[in-house]
């Protein structure tokens, strides 16, 4: 175990744009009453605990990876998304990025 906590200041609130996005989606759903925060915290802490078994989490990228996994599982459980649907749209977005000229806005093709 790394016993040294490195303290670097100041740091950006979100290191990656997708960290901000997944955070905002979760807060928006909570505000809309789709789940309450204690429930979220309990689920999220379970994911963190599971991920932390195999390696030490640094609270950066791995923190939001656990966050995203928790949100996906929660939405699937609530019946708001399915693994197939997530995977289909993930592929559609990948294709949109790969087929959009650099500098142009990336949009999903009409399905």
């Amino acid at each position: 175990m790394n016993d040294c906590i490195t303290y670097a200041a100041p740091e950006p609130v979100f290191a990656e744009p997708w960290h901000a996005q997944v955070f905002a989606v979760t807060v928006a759903l909570n505000e809309a009453g789709r789940f309450d925060w204690p429930d979220w915290a309990e689920r999220f802490s379970k994911t963190l605990k599971r991920h932390g078994l195999s390696r030490e989490l640094d609270g950066g990228e791995d923190y939001f990876t656990a966050w995203l996994e928790t949100l996906e599982a929660l939405l699937i459980e609530l019946g708001e998304a399915s693994p197939d649907r997530i995977s289909a749209l993930r592929n559609a977005w990948e294709e949109a990025y790969l087929t959009t000229s650099h500098g142009k806005p990336v949009r999903l093709r009409q399905e």
Binding site: W18, Q21, V22, V25, L29, L68, L71, E72, L75, E80, A81, R85, I86, S87, A88, L89, R90, A92, W93, L108
Partner: peptide, 8 residues
């Protein structure tokens, strides 16, 4: 994340 955003 973009996939989830689109669905929601």
């Amino acid at each position: 994340v973009k996939a989830l955003e689109t669905i929601l």
